[in-house]
């Protein structure tokens, strides 16, 4: 059973003539970190919203094909049920936090599920610690920085003990440091708590660094799906899809072009350093001999 299983899924929002998803097939295994990359309007958000049933329950439309979350058909299970399996975080930090204190924010989900007070308090402490926001219980969400707000939003999802976190461009309004902190939190959740993470982005820099798998979307379809190295190696292609390529992949592509017999395909700074050092130190030595 997969965390997310889409097979030829088509979705059209009510009142729209275009298919937002036009035959998507995508499997996310439990415990994987998957990034969906694509231009604005390519269908990333719709997949995110479908993963906890907001599509089609809160945002209705025509849904065809298979769309299952942990084996549950999203059509026949309400959001309130799927919410205990999948926690979702939206792009805008401000408008998804609606309580007067961080504690109430994180407690809101389990309160709705009628979890006993003592256990809610334990969950709140646990969730805040996981996102590095312990001690902020009494602060108003309004007073936090963008990065802190997003981490509280993650904690608010975690307190419902979901098996998967889904984030729709969560770093949208964050500065670079806030971005790094956010991804570190997600990485920790995946590695130490077996959390499945599904993320939508239009910049692939973090996808290259953190994802197990990357899906490339175009016009409501997944056109490539696999390991970052296999999917993100061609910067020209990514640009054409409206996706920012990993910057070092451009170095890799240029070197391949100019250096005969070079077989580079690095997407991270570490790999690039190793590969280039090897190649060019040899070359230098070769020249010196």
């Amino acid at each position: 059973m997969q965390a997310l299983h889409l097979r030829d899924a088509r979705f059209r929002y009510k009142g729209s003539t275009a298919w937002a998803l036009d035959g998507v097939s995508l499997d996310v295994e439990k415990g994987e970190f998957v990034t969906i990359l694509g231009a604005n309007g390519s269908g990333k958000s719709t997949i995110c919203l479908m993963s906890n049933g907001l599509v089609p329950h809160a945002l209705p439309g025509d849904l065809e094909g298979t769309a299952e979350v942990f084996g549950l058909d999203v059509r026949s299970h309400p959001v309130t049920e799927l919410a205990t399996k999948v926690g979702i975080i939206f792009q805008e930090p401000e408008s998804q936090l609606f309580c007067m204190s961080v504690e109430e924010e994180v407690a809101f989900g389990p309160e709705n599920l009628a979890v006993p007070s003592d256990e809610i308090r334990e969950r709140v402490e646990w969730a805040l610690e996981l996102v590095g926001m312990e001690g902020y219980n009494d602060r108003s969400p309004f007073s936090l920085s963008g990065g802190q707000k997003q981490r509280v939003a993650i904690a608010a999802a975690l307190s419902m003990r979901p098996d998967m976190l889904v984030l729709d461009e969560p770093a949208y309004a964050l500065d670079p440091v806030g971005r790094v902190e956010l991804y570190q939190v997600l990485k920790g959740l995946k590695e130490h708590h077996g959390m499945t993470v599904l993320l939508a982005e239009c910049d692939s820099e973090e996808a290259a660094k953190y994802s197990d798998k990357v899906a490339l979307m175009k016009d409501g379809r997944v056109i490539s799906y696999g390991k970052p190295r296999d999917v993100l190696g061609d910067p020209e292609r990514l640009r054409a899809l409206g996706v920012t390529p990993p910057q070092v992949s451009e170095v890799s592509a240029l070197l391949k072009e100019r250096l005969e017999g070079a077989d580079f395909s690095f997407i991270s700074v570490d790999e690039a350093e190793r590969a280039i050092n090897e190649k060019f130190t040899n070359r230098k030595r070769g020249r010196e001999q």
Binding site: D175, V248, V251, V269, A272, E273, I276, N277, T281
Partner: peptide
Amino acid sequence: LVPPPVAQLAHRLSSL
């Protein structure tokens, strides 16, 4: 601020 990957790479390749 986070330096772009190419700047990070350039620093690591200064010996070249």
